[in-house]
Nucleic acid binder design. Structure first.
Length: 108
DNA sequence: ACATTGACTAATT
DNA sequence: TAATTAGCCAATG
């Protein structure tokens, strides 16, 4: 995984507005598009995004990236939910996952 | 080269 | 809704 890829992922995550969220899959798609636009080969998928976040995600709003079901990473569930609540991210009724329909964000 | 492992996903039950 | 299963892509041993 080279630095170009890592940077692309971190830059994108850093642009997610407070109160919104993106899924790993969507992040992967957008990053893929950016690479293609830059003339580079499309690579990576949701799991690669996860790898990057696990290794280098500490400096960006990682809690705004959730899985396809709207759940934050299993290891940081409680912490992530607290942060999401704090910034008024739309959550499901039980408060354990992000309400994707309302909170999903796609870059302009 | 092969097997295992993940901050994953989509389809099936 | 929640558990299971089979794909998935790249890193690591």
């Amino acid at each position: 995984m080279d630095d170009d890829y890592v940077e692309a992922v971190l830059d994108l995550v850093a642009r997610i507005p407070a109160g919104r969220a993106m899924t790993y899959g969507t992040v992967a798609e957008v990053v893929g598009d950016e690479l293609a636009a830059a003339g580079l080969a499309r690579r990576g998928g949701p799991r690669q995004v996860g790898q990057v976040m696990a290794r280098a995600g500490s400096g960006v709003p990682w809690w705004r990236v959730v899985n396809a079901a709207g759940s934050p990473p299993a290891r940081h569930t409680t912490r992530a939910l607290a942060l999401l609540r704090a910034e008024r991210t739309p959550l499901s009724a039980d408060g354990t996952r992000v309400a994707l329909r309302a909170a999903i964000w796609f870059p302009d």
